[in-house]
């Protein structure tokens, strides 16, 4: 391989020198090049050029990446794991179903405890209300934690159709907002 490379370089340099000599002395060294041959050489050059251009397009430009040392290291924000679970909970894969269950359990626990403290219910009654969907007026919030389906008006159903968010993550959002409102004494 190396020999071939050396030979090629030698020929290349020779050709370059011959070309330069030809330019300077303005002679053809007896080569009679007709129009067709020269055109063929031109086409060959274009083909080669396109090959190089193609190599360029496919080239992997490599460079070293740098970190961000001027920024502080990052610590998580409480609740980020839950947001991730909610995002993963769409669909019917094993993992989404598991995440959906985990999300539901965590929401149910928080809701029941809040009802016990802020509505002065005993835990059984609070659980019953959550399961029956009676703990809130918001059907979207009630529905996700309820055992059966919760009655909702035509308007709510219609609104649901035009929502960008999935029904599940909308429900999660509504529950969390509702429980927060109860805790802060706004409901």
């Amino acid at each position: 391989m190396r020999v071939l490379r050396g030979v090629t370089i030698a020929f290349g340099v020779l050709a370059a020198l011959a070309g330069l000599a030809s330019v300077v002395t303005n002679s053809t060294f007896g080569f009679a090049l007709d129009y067709l041959f020269v055109t063929l050489v031109g086409l060959f050059a274009i083909a080669q050029g396109l090959r190089y251009a193609g190599a360029r397009r496919g080239a992997d430009l490599e460079f070293t990446e740098t970190g961000d040392p001027e920024l502080r290291y990052e610590v998580p924000t409480p609740g980020g794991d839950f947001d991730e679970q909610v995002a993963n909970a769409e669909g019917w894969s094993f993992r989404s179903v598991r995440d959906r269950d985990a999300v539901r359990d965590r929401l149910r626990e928080a809701t029941v405890e809040t009802l016990v403290v802020h509505r002065s219910l005993d835990p059984e009654e609070a659980t019953r209300r959550v399961n029956a969907g009676e703990w809130t007026d918001d059907p979207d919030a009630a529905d996700l934690l309820a055992d059966g389906t919760v009655e909702r008006g035509a308007r709510d159903v219609l609104r649901g159709l035009f929502r960008r968010e999935s029904r599940h993550s909308h429900g999660v959002r509504r529950i969390v907002a509702e429980v927060d409102a109860i805790q802060r004494g706004e409901r």
Binding site: G12, V13, G19, V38, V41, A45
Partner: peptide, 10 residues
């Protein structure tokens, strides 16, 4: 032609 050949080879 010579120069072109040189370029292609090199």
């Amino acid at each position: 032609v010579f120069l072109l050949l040189a370029v292609v080879l090199l």
